[in-house]
Computed example of a mutant assay.
Amino acid sequence: MADLEVWQYACIGLLFVWSGFVRSGLGFGGAVLTLPFLLILLNAPLVFLPIIAVHLLFFSALTIGLAKWEARRRREADQNTPADTVNWAFLRYALPLMLVPKLIGVAGVITLPADVVSAFIFALVSIYAVSYILNRPFRSGSRRVDALFMIIGGYVSGTSLVAAPLVVPVAASRVRREQLRDTLFVLWFILVGIKLAAFVISGVDLQWEHHLWLLPCAAVGHVLGLRFHRFTLRAETSMFFRVLGGGLLAVSLAGLARIFLGY
């Protein structure tokens, strides 16, 4: 990024503020809702992907740690308060389905053109998103369909950054909203950790010098996102699902724009 103009650096900093806000506010979408705009400024995915991956690992671990500490403190005052903000049962269900497809995707084994797969996913998830926005969330009603979504999500996670639109609807139907964000954070931590290890093995530059100024930018967005997340938890259930649906729809539209506009 050495040849960029000052205004481009400023835009990149603001986009990482946005990335931190979305990540901590919703628990997903920090990469997908940011990367298309970053690539307009500098069309070099391997410059930004390692930075985003490291940020996700750092802030997800920080958020989960703080959430567990707050949950224990609340439980001391009220024994009816759940002791954990992570739904480990869902992770035990999801990870066995996702890990092998994830490794296949990381290895670069392509069965269909990536844009075809992504476009199909984004179009499908747009339907889910609209149903959430209209407060009429629907479920597949089939364990096999849910499992298929998780398997495809694992593969797509290995090849790109669009697993959330497939995984989030399944998780939202199985996990209480108070646990949804932190459960997703643990899942992303594991999956992104595998992706980052692949970067290291492949010799990809992790851009450590740019973390010095982009990490504080993401931290500002992270704090704002935490406040937004608390607001959604206090809001009524219909409001929560509308926010969830709005996030999914924004992710899907950003992904479709990237595919059809070719950036």
Rank of each mutant, 00 (worst) to 15 (best):
Thr34Phe: 05
Gly255Asp: 06
Gly29Val: 01
Ala31Asn: 04
Leu206Asn: 05
Val116Cys: 03
Tyr128Gly: 00
Val162Ser: 04
Ala147Ser: 15
Arg176Cys: 02
Leu46Pro: 01
Leu187Ser: 07
Arg23Trp: 01
Leu46Val: 02
Ala198Trp: 04
Ser202Trp: 01
Ala114Glu: 11
Ser142Phe: 08
Tyr9Gly: 05
Leu212Trp: 11
Leu35Glu: 09
Leu95Tyr: 13
Thr183Ser: 14
Leu148Phe: 13
Asp84Pro: 06
Leu35His: 13
Arg136Gln: 13
Arg74Cys: 01
Val32Asp: 14
Leu214Glu: 07
Leu62Ala: 15
Ala89Val: 08
Ser160Val: 03
Val100Thr: 12
Gly105Asp: 02
Ala163Trp: 03
Gly154Glu: 00
Asp115Tyr: 06
Val116Lys: 01
Ala254Pro: 14
Tyr132Val: 02
Leu212Lys: 13
Gly245Met: 10
Val125Gln: 05
Asp115Glu: 14
Ala83Lys: 06
Val204Phe: 03
Leu15Phe: 11
Gly108Val: 09
Val200Glu: 05
Gly25Ser: 13
Lys68Asp: 02
Asp146His: 11
Phe48Gly: 03
His210Thr: 05
Leu226Gln: 11
Val243Gly: 04
Lys102Phe: 03
Cys217Gln: 14
Gly30Arg: 04
Leu226Thr: 05
Leu215Trp: 11
Phe189Arg: 06
Pro165Arg: 08
Arg23Gln: 13
Phe149Asp: 03
Leu38Met: 12
Ala67Ser: 15
Pro113Phe: 13
Arg176His: 13
Arg92Ile: 03
Phe120Met: 12
Asp182Met: 15
Lys68Thr: 07
Leu38Asn: 08
Thr34Leu: 06
Thr63Gln: 09
Gln8Val: 10
